[in-house]
Design a protein around this nucleic acid. Sequence first.
DNA 1: TTTAGCACTCTCGGCTTGAGAGTGCTAAAT
DNA 2: ATTTAGCACTCTCAAGCCGAGAGTGCTAAA
Lengths: 343, 343
Amino acid sequence: MHLSDRQKLILTLIIHEHIHTAQPVGSKTIVEKYDLTMSSATVRNEMAVLTDVELLRQPHTSAGRVPTEEGYRFFVGNLIQKSGLPTNTRRTITHQFYQSRQDIEQWLKLAASVLANQSQAASLVTAPHSEKAIFKHLELIATRGRQVLMVLVLVGGEIRQQFISLAEPVPQEQLSQIANQLSHLCLRQDIQGISRLQGQLDPIGQEILEILLAEMSLIEESATGEIYLEGMTNVLSEPEFSESDEARQALHILEEPSMLENLLASTMMNTDVGGIQVLIGGEGTWEELRQVSLVLARYGDPKTLTGSIGVLGPIRMPYDRTISTVRFVANVLSDLVSETLAV
Amino acid sequence: MHLSDRQKLILTLIIHEHIHTAQPVGSKTIVEKYDLTMSSATVRNEMAVLTDVELLRQPHTSAGRVPTEEGYRFFVGNLIQKSGLPTNTRRTITHQFYQSRQDIEQWLKLAASVLANQSQAASLVTAPHSEKAIFKHLELIATRGRQVLMVLVLVGGEIRQQFISLAEPVPQEQLSQIANQLSHLCLRQDIQGISRLQGQLDPIGQEILEILLAEMSLIEESATGEIYLEGMTNVLSEPEFSESDEARQALHILEEPSMLENLLASTMMNTDVGGIQVLIGGEGTWEELRQVSLVLARYGDPKTLTGSIGVLGPIRMPYDRTISTVRFVANVLSDLVSETLAV
DNA sequence: TTTAGCACTCTCGGCTTGAGAGTGCTAAAT
DNA sequence: ATTTAGCACTCTCAAGCCGAGAGTGCTAAA
């Protein structure tokens, strides 16, 4: 299907208008609001055509037109390349990142917060995560009796801490020594490498080694890192969600880590770092997302550590703005991650 | 104000009924539903009295009665002592905790999840936090160039990790040595104690000491630990929130950490561990909470480490059930925390 | 090809109306 | 002195009706 320039213009204007009135838009409205040189009748004819090819829809005979999901997709398709963020917005955002604490967790929270505020919608950010767990460093800290705090650092910077309970109390001295020994033996090894050490250590070392291995497989198995959400309430203030049930279902997906991981896994599979995915109205697959759209991106270092960020808002969200924000924040995070965390 | 037993009964029944119909309840209804031995006229007379003392309210002349906030308070007051959780529910919950990973973070997430599911409302859990930061252990892990990962453990078990950037690159060997030295020097010291070490160390040690101090004051300043939320969407499915704005405002408070910390600080001040606070309809102070109630509890070790947990639901929530759940989960957490984290 | 004009359709808010729910009062019954 | 039956009264709510307004599609002229 190919559209004339005029048809594209009209489609764009209708979407644009609908996005911030949340109302069906009529022929007269756009002629007047945008000072078109043609008459409303002409617009009406074009609108009829656009309705035929299912880019527009009329809720009822005598209402204006509303974009269909296909319409939004067309619109977004034309949009996804260009669209930059205003320089001062970029500056504000960058500034916030560089004056926050130099800490990956802070950055991720900040990213979630920036996305939520800029887009006035719900945002999600997953911590960078690598598919392959490679050992970097281990610490053991005695707490009380047999309880020991284990801190495991992976190449790339993922950190897990966990309280473990040993078979018998071990003094801090000895723990440090074991940690040191293991740190050296395991450095830059993956799970296979480390499991080869089994049986070569004293009993306590062996005990810890097993816990270590269990933890590392756990990390490899999980599909994403920690998930940060923000701005759920923003979505609720959109007029189309005053009958809250539609919004509830969508937000519920965000709240349920397993569902969200699924969604991200299946969506981001074929998206590389720097790329943007726009999911409009659930794309026929995700029933619960029928009334919302998702703008998603990957960030990080393609081969090693990646995470996802995204925004969930009403279908009639300001895509240009949202896409550029998401893309920009993804880039900022990519930079920060590769600066700080790389081996 | 003192009520006759019959009045109490009627009040209780009305609240009970209203809680699961979400409708005003009339005299005839309760006589029939609860097989009362008196007639509806009698009930009506009593209802008139209860309305006079503002425990009940009628939305309009010819509707049934609805409890006022005061009414709920009276009801909850009679309730707060007793109310135990069914044994099998207790078992289910305990079971979940003991089969989860032995990790404070997991426990807190689990607590949030249990509360949200059991009460079908929104839950909040703050990580245990002590007002006084006491040093336990320090680790420094080289990552790349001047970037160093610092892991700080406090007595009580709070852990902070942070990437720091030193003036010049330092090899892991030396970092370990510094960490060791500092760990010994600072053991069980508070901020004052540690600041006395200033100037007695080599330049790198000094640099790290300062970051350490900054971090510790940051911890002391913050009012709560990490906050975990869950089940926000549960609240949205309540009928009174189909006009979503009321719910939005309340959920917004949960989403905004500063507001929530405020709320917790001012509410929990005079609640000791094991105690329960029930905030009904914002108690006149919290405008945004007018339409909701909060059931809050403290857990942890009174003198050292405490955190808060709570449930936010519609005013007409099943208080008995919610209170016992919150109390039970608080106790479980207290046990786990004191078992694991104590010095 | 575009546009003016017009008849037509459909929604939406306002209004009315009747049914139903629930009350409060009064007078009789216990 | 309570309790209860009876009844008139009040108010909401859903349904139906109406007219205004918005917007369309078609036709015929420019």
